[in-house]
Computed example of a mutant assay.
Amino acid sequence: MTDPDTLDAFLMQRRRLMGAGLAALALPAMGKNRSGHATTPDAFDTFVAEQMRLANIPGLAVGLAREGNVRLVRGYGYANIEKRRPVTVDTQFHIASITKTVTAAAIMQLADDGRLTLDEPVARHLDFPLNNPNHPTAPITFRELLTHTSSLSDAKYYEIDFRVRGQDATLSLSDFLKNYLVPTGSVYSSDKCFSKAMPGSTWDYSNVGYALLGYLASRIAAKDMRQQTRERIFAPLGMHDTHWRLSDTPRRRSAIPYDMIDGVLKPLEPVGFPDWPAGMLRSSVADFTRFVAASANGGTAQGVRILRSETMAQMLDMQTPIGLPDWLTGQGLGWMASRLNGAVKPNHWGGDPGVFTAVYLDPASQAGVVLFSNASASSQSKSAIRSIASRLLSVDAHG
């Protein structure tokens, strides 16, 4: 891989997305305040505008949190190019794999409650058998699922496009998992649904593993994890524009996803998929910066605690399992780490056709940043996102 810093490069390659040429797209960048109205351009706005121009990013929303509070949220460019609808701080973006940090937080809340322990076998909580046929006596644990070392493989997952265009998936999470992980399942493959590695031994990024975590959270709490997160994370933090389902996401405020095809940005339909705990969340930067504020501040934001400080520290305690790619410096519980401008930062990236997102944390300064864009990743946009993230972490609340 030519871009060793990003998870997105890895995921997008495995989805075998169409290679895209680049064309100049001169869109005006519009700084927005909390109400979505244009602000006076400043040095940060000018910097973001230039990065967007160079990377052909149609729309971008950015957020900065410090010491548990949201300090800055702004929108730039267009959520809908054709209608010239601008990005505001309330524009809904598909955040893709950043969703995994929320799923991990839900699991850790249950651990804080004493409902599970990280090193216990997860099979005892399931209504179907689970074991790696290559290592049938080795249990799979919560910690292994959280750190992508469970031996659940996405090889078969990437052969089958489970996404549904324009609507929520009709296949349930339960049926998706049973079809994939149980020998009698319709898509089961002992060679492609599980790796040859022993559980706990080797890093292998797994969307299926995070889908299973969401299912486990629902069974353990006897409540759908989507409802759990609404009650225990979103509502307490005031995140009223964060949704698990396409049907709940206001289309009039959603960013249109774009892919570069034959040198032109083309709109795509939004997608739904059954493995929703792995990447289905839609959110606004005004909302999600609140969650990132808590993640960078020991589990507390705006006076609301969603996780114990010890638990949040545990999530950001980075390990280096065998197989960890060289573009990562560590793997935590839900969170990863890599270098940003020479310094190691916990982070997570997200990517899908028409979607490119990133969050970075700096626990030492209790700061975090959020960047949502509505175009497929390119080498230029990856560079732009890193540059903007680095700049955000160095500015104050006024840019």
Rank of each mutant, 00 (worst) to 15 (best):
H135W: 11
R124Y: 01
T249V: 01
Q167K: 14
N80F: 00
H240N: 06
A286S: 14
P58W: 07
S254G: 02
R308M: 05
A278M: 06
F128G: 07
A294K: 08
I140F: 00
A293E: 10
T99N: 03
P250Y: 04
D3R: 12
T101I: 13
P257L: 01
R165F: 01
A79C: 09
L177D: 11
S338Q: 12
P267S: 04
E120G: 09
T39Q: 08
G75C: 04
M225G: 00
H348F: 08
D241E: 14
T103Q: 06
S151Q: 03
L17E: 14
L146M: 14
N374Y: 13
N134Y: 00
K83E: 15
A197E: 05
S206N: 12
T91E: 06
G272M: 00
A293V: 10
V182T: 11
Y258E: 09
P346H: 10
I233H: 01
A23R: 08
D3K: 09
E120W: 03
R386G: 10
I57V: 15
G114M: 12
F234L: 08
R282W: 01
W276N: 04
L126V: 09
N134E: 02
Q380M: 07
S206P: 10
V359W: 00
D45S: 08
L213C: 02
R115L: 15
P41S: 09
G75T: 05
A104M: 07
H348L: 12
Y158D: 14
G36R: 04
S189Y: 00
A301E: 11
G303L: 09
S190N: 07
C193P: 04
D362S: 15
T202R: 02
T289Y: 04
G185P: 04
A235F: 13
V89I: 09
G303Q: 09
L340M: 15
G351T: 15
L340C: 15
L237M: 13
P257V: 05
T39V: 14
L7N: 05
D248R: 03
Q314P: 01
H240E: 09
M280D: 07
E231N: 13
F47M: 11
T6E: 13
V292W: 05
R290P: 01
W335Q: 06
E269M: 10
T242L: 09
R71W: 12
G185K: 10
L213D: 03
K178Q: 12
G238Q: 08
S379D: 15
F194G: 05
T329R: 13
T117M: 05
G323T: 05
D5A: 14
K83L: 13
V187A: 09
F128T: 10
D154I: 05
S283M: 07
T46E: 11
P28H: 11
Q51L: 06
H398L: 15
M315N: 09
E120S: 15
L328H: 04
T202Q: 01
R14I: 13
A337E: 12
A301P: 03
D119Y: 01
A358Y: 07
I107E: 02
A26G: 01
A294G: 05
L212V: 07
V271G: 01
V89P: 12
M30I: 15
L265W: 04
R163D: 08
T311L: 13
E159P: 00
R305I: 10
D191L: 05
D287L: 04
L181N: 03
V285N: 01
R66M: 14
Q302I: 05
